[in-house]
């Protein structure tokens, strides 16, 4: 249940919202917990909220695993 999904922040918006890219799909998340995040950085998303900011190069590695995870969940 504590699964986190890496996402790239595209744009910060009003009310703690941000538009992010997850594996090519754009979605909106809440960034109340990581207010200092800037567009271009990766965050770890859990239940629609950014939990932590992560390193770009490492996030890509994590994404590879995510795909397997999503395949498995289907």
């Amino acid at each position: 249940m504590c699964l986190g999904v890496p996402a790239k922040v595209i744009e910060k918006m009003a009310n703690d919202a941000a538009r992010v890219d997850v594996n090519g799909n754009q979605t909106e998340i809440n960034i109340r917990l990581t207010p200092e995040v800037e567009p271009g950085q990766y965050v770890l998303v859990h239940a629609g909220f950014a939990m932590e900011i992560i390193d770009e190069s490492i996030a890509l590695e994590t994404m590879h695993y995510l795909e397997e995870m999503l395949q498995y969940e289907q």
Partner: peptide
Amino acid sequence: GIGFETTTPAIAI
């Protein structure tokens, strides 16, 4: 509302 410390902040907000 279910989950550990990873999930609880989302519910709190």
